[in-house]
């Protein structure tokens, strides 16, 4: 399209500014030499020093990492299975599978959090903690992995699998040697997606978290609610730097994973 108009570009730039300005303010105040995020006083790195001495914060970060890795791994396996099942067998009882897999993705998070809380308490009588958080994170991640894997499978030629079968490969061999290598980028993208979702999740974790398993978002929430400390700005800045690095690495390793496929 060559009908670009300057005002359209102006509007687009304004929206980009809207996206970045608030975060820039957070970063700038992380270097401000004042307890209050109110006005610029002077440059300091003491909030970062304080952050690295904050045992609770570091522990929360470690919790988040462990939960995200575990939940993403399980969700990737289950989600890949669901994605394959949805694509290969869209008949019979399994016709209901997409509904089951995709509804949790579409629901407002609070509903998932509340219903799991009810279920853990009233049916399983489970002590809230690591297990409840893991189950919750896996539940909301499966759908995302399944969508990505199914999209990857949908773009493939069915005849490859038939050829493998005709050559006498067992279903397992077909899967190992043909399907898996082909959908691997989708699986990787699904893993990264569920990892990000898990490490970022606040709402659902808020409901199902228990004693001693504070995650980073929960820790940030309680800090924001109590008193504004530039320590929050410092942890935010570091998290942003970390995600930027991860995205950069991911774009080097799997350039396709970041593309928005029409």
């Amino acid at each position: 399209m060559k009908h670009r108009t300057p005002w359209l570009w102006g509007a687009a730039l304004a929206v980009y500014a809207f996206l970045y300005l608030p975060l820039a303010v957070v970063v700038i105040f992380s270097f401000n030499d004042s307890q209050l995020n109110a006005q610029w006083v002077g440059f300091t790195t003491r909030w970062y020093a304080k952050l690295f001495a904050d045992g609770e914060m570091l522990h929360a970060a470690a919790n988040s990492l462990a939960i995200a890795l575990t939940a993403a791994s399980v969700a990737t396996v289950l989600g890949t299975m669901a994605g394959i099942a949805m694509q290969r067998w869209p008949t019979g009882v399994l016709r209901a599978l997409p509904g089951l897999v995709l509804t949790p993705v579409a629901m407002p998070e609070i509903l998932l959090g509340v219903s799991l809380l009810l279920f853990f308490r009233e049916v399983l009588d489970l002590t809230l903690g690591l297990v409840s958080i893991l189950v919750a994170h896996i539940t909301f991640s499966i759908g995302f992995v399944a969508i990505i894997v199914r999209a990857r499978l949908a773009g493939m030629d069915e005849s490859i699998f038939e050829a493998a079968r005709d050559l006498g490969a067992s279903p397992w061999q077909t899967f190992r040697c043909v399907t898996l290598p082909l959908i691997a980028p989708g699986i990787l993208a699904g893993f990264l997606m569920s990892f990000t979702l898990s490490i970022d999740d606040f709402v659902i974790t808020f409901f199902v978290a228990g004693v001693g398993v504070t995650t980073l978002p929960l820790q940030i929430y309680s800090m924001i609610k109590v008193a504004v400390s530039p320590e929050v700005n410092a942890v935010s800045t570091l998290l942003m730097a970390l995600t930027l690095t991860l995205i950069f690495i991911a774009s080097r390793l799997a350039p396709d994973a970041l593309k928005v496929k029409p």
Binding site: Y20, L21, P22, P217, I220, V232
Partner: peptide, 28 residues
């Protein structure tokens, strides 16, 4: 791809941090 990435990037930061940014911005 780059322009789309620029849209997604701010959302790689935590949800609460994005809300917190507005507390700082709108307070004064």
């Amino acid at each position: 791809d780059l322009l789309v990435l620029l849209v997604i990037l701010p959302f790689a930061s935590n949800f609460l941090i994005r809300v917190y940014a507005w507390i700082i911005l709108l307070g004064p």
